[in-house]
Amino acid sequence: MSSATVDTPEGGFEFIVHDDHHHDDGEHHHETGTMLGFWIYLMSDCLIFGILFAIYAVVGQNYAAGPAPVDLFELDKIAWATAWLLLSSITYGFSVIKMHENNKNMMMFWLLVTGIFGAAFLYLSVEEFMHLWHIGAGPGASAFLSAFWFLVGTHGVHVACGALWLVVLLVQVQIHGLTHENKRRILCLSLFWHFLDLIWIGVFSFVYLTGVLL
């Protein structure tokens, strides 16, 4: 019904239905449908991580005569990874503020900084996993390592997907500008990114810091 009145960008098909409704309201109203839907996706992701944490809690101390956390984890590197992720969270926040101010260049700058911090985190993660693999502490070595690789690996894959999404968004904003659709995408990725930082709090508290004590 509304497709006739709105000049749709390519790929904007699924959002047309809401467009009429919100067109007059300006930008201050969230598009309840998409944002709430994305939030519920995050909650389902939260369940996945909850289950992975539960698995780790159950089998995380079954070393099968293999290496234990205290032999494997290098806390100084984890501290750096935590710092990068936390910094990327606040720079994303700045990016969202600039988006609300319709300042495209500064918004892209902070988004780029976020991406660089995210890449630094990913670099440390990949380095750690490669190191573990080379010393024979792969996911097949013990129940503890299976649970560890699965939990931390899932988080890492999420961050990698978020980084890819971030790059795509940078291109989108560069080409199409701060359109209504792009703003919504930026807000969705913001939720995703902050959510991953929240999960990381659980990972470094439960897996790394507690791990080296037991």
Partner: peptide, 14 residues
Amino acid sequence: FTVMLVVIIMAGSI
């Protein structure tokens, strides 16, 4: 709702 489910899953499993 999610926090409730996560608590049930984790506490129950452990």
